[in-house]
């Protein structure tokens, strides 16, 4: 079923909410170690795709294969256990916990099952060290003891990534990790994502910032009104007249598309 070297295979994926066809027969593969950009105007169905891949929504039709097994319809915590980490478009840290505790929450995942670990302590040295290691990886060690609610937006986005990394993911779904970031934070985030990719994590990213998406992604898939409009290298897709029209029609991103 799974293509050669594909860690994620999506086939004929559809989602209807009442009368709205949010995603309509979308198919694509994500190769191991690849960074794939999922692009498209607002309302194109990108986040709905993410929600189906991560188990939040059960697809109306179609199949999802992750790492050699069929996973459509599995619950989010099962997907997390299998190695799918994700971030959210709107950052949502556990605001009354510290930054380190946020990460430690995700580190316990293998133990949240059954009655046996009912009384296992969570605040242990290996867990604290593990959290610090991940915070170091995203550059947040100095904020470890701070309340997560007080972080600036750019740091929130990196905290979300640290939390997702605590799952030791094989696949990372990044939902608009660049939105709202200042210029220097964008460069930093780009470096972080590249380093994650270099460490062997496959990455699927939704991005509105076309410049960043085009430079990070090895391939891109463009959605419009729930359908796949184009797929290919960033250069080929940016030159695709249908893609340009989809964006122009929305009052979109002429410079970025033309600038690649």
């Amino acid at each position: 079923m799974t293509g050669d070297g594909a860690i994620l295979s999506v086939r004929g994926l559809s989602k209807r909410f009442g009368g709205l066809q949010a995603v309509d027969r979308v198919s694509f593969d994500l190769m191991r170690g690849e960074i794939l950009g999922l692009l498209g105007p607002n309302g194109a169905g990108k986040t709905t795709c993410f929600n189906m891949i991560s188990g939040v929504h059960r697809p109306t039709e179609g199949t999802i294969h992750f790492d050699g097994r069929r996973t459509d319809g599995l619950e989010p915590h099962r997907m997390a256990e299998l190695g799918v980490g994700r971030t959210f478009q709107i950052v949502r840290p556990f605001a009354s916990m510290t930054v380190a505790e946020n990460v430690m929450t995700a580190l316990g995942r293998s133990n949240y099952r059954g009655i046996h670990p009912l009384f296992r302590r969570w605040d242990t040295k290996p867990c604290r060290d593990g959290a610090m290691e991940l915070l170091e990886r995203v550059g947040l060690t100095s904020y470890a003891a701070r309340n997560a609610g007080q972080l600036p937006l750019g740091d929130h986005r990196r905290l979300e990534i640290a939390r997702a990394l605590a799952l030791a993911p094989k696949l990372l779904l990044l939902d608009e990790s660049f939105s709202g970031l200042r210029h220097e934070e964008v460069a930093r985030m780009e470096g972080l994502i590249r380093s994650l990719s270099d460490s062997g994590i496959s990455i699927l990213l939704i991005e509105h910032n076309m410049k960043v998406a085009m430079s990070l992604s090895q391939r891109v898939v463009v959605l419009d009104h729930g359908r796949k409009l184009a797929e290919g290298s960033p250069e080929a897709v940016a030159a695709d007249p249908e893609v340009i029209e989809a964006y122009l029609g929305k009052g979109g991103i002429v410079d970025a598309a033309g600038g690649v």
């Binding site: 989010p76 256990e81 994700r86 556990f94 929450t105 995700a106 939390r163």
Partner: peptide, 17 residues
């Protein structure tokens, strides 16, 4: 605690809500 703070986030971190 995590589930009561934010159930969707907790489940994305592997917690069975």
């Amino acid at each position: 605690r995590a589930t009561s703070m934010d159930a969707p986030i907790a489940s994305s971190l592997g917690i069975n809500g």
